[in-house]
């Protein structure tokens, strides 16, 4: 097993932190509060051992923060309106996206699935989700093969081809992609049944998943920050 830098948090705690972060970002009373939220998230990133990501994310946000201040100070009204609408969306999404990056980098798929199982998410959701996460990287490989095949058959794969021969291009993209997807579905279901995915016993995981003091502390921190935004 590879050694992990920084503290490990429980996947369930991380999901809860994401919810809290979304709440904070949605109900943020001021721009300074958003900055505080991003700082708090960066601190969490540092604790998790994601040094580079946390610092870069913080720096990027600082730049956007400065831009926003500049846009607010500017005089041109139409430009301001467009920019503010967009930046408003950006500021709402950024803290969550930032935290999500940390969560994704520090959580293994198997841990995530075990956590989903522990919060009683039914099999009808967890099995497709496991398959989905497993299949996403495979799509890229399929895509490369399809590109090669198209070049071999002299079907151009760029915008011009899409305009001059739309039907041909669409068929050449979708048909092999979905054929291979449906073949993979058959193979994967056979493989997973032989490996006992239908076993009704509790799923086990090599990494121990347990809510600890650090998880509680992190949740308390974010909850306190949320409450501070509401009532102060």
């Amino acid at each position: 097993m590879t050694k992990h830098r920084g503290l490990r948090f429980d996947p369930r705690a991380k999901l809860l932190l994401l919810v809290l972060c979304a709440l904070c970002a949605t109900m943020a009373p001021s721009l300074t509060y958003e900055l505080g939220l991003v700082l708090l998230t960066a601190a969490l990133g540092l604790i998790c051992g994601q040094w580079r990501y946390a610092l870069m994310g913080l720096l990027f946000y600082a730049v956007i923060f400065g831009l926003t201040e500049a846009a607010l100070a500017g005089s041109s009204t139409t430009l301001k309106t467009t920019l503010i609408a967009f930046l408003g969306l950006f500021h709402k999404v950024y803290p969550c996206g930032f935290l999500a990056g940390i969560v994704i980098a520090t959580t293994k798929v198997s841990e995530f699935l075990t956590a989903m199982r522990q919060i009683r998410v039914p099999n009808t959701i967890t099995i497709p989700m496991a398959v989905m996460l497993r299949y996403l990287p495979a799509v890229r490989e399929d895509w490369r093969l399809i590109q090669d095949a198209m070049r071999l058959r002299d079907v151009p794969l760029h915008l011009k081809g899409l305009v001059t021969q739309p039907v041909m291009t669409v068929e050449c993209l979708y048909v092999p992609m979905m054929m291979s997807a449906s073949r993979t579905a058959d193979e994967l279901s056979i493989a997973s049944v032989t490996r006992g995915i239908e076993n009704p016993a509790d799923r086990t995981c090599l990494t121990r998943i347990q809510l600890g003091l650090r998880d509680v502390l992190a949740i308390v921190c974010f909850t306190a920050y949320f409450a501070a935004g509401r009532f102060l």
Binding site: N123, P128, A130, V131, T184
Partner: peptide, 18 residues
């Protein structure tokens, strides 16, 4: 829903999301 249905759903959900 059989396991095969769930796996198929998962794979096509991945494509749909992409």
């Amino acid at each position: 829903l059989t396991v095969k249905d769930l796996v198929t759903t998962g794979i096509f959900s991945a494509l749909l999301w992409l």
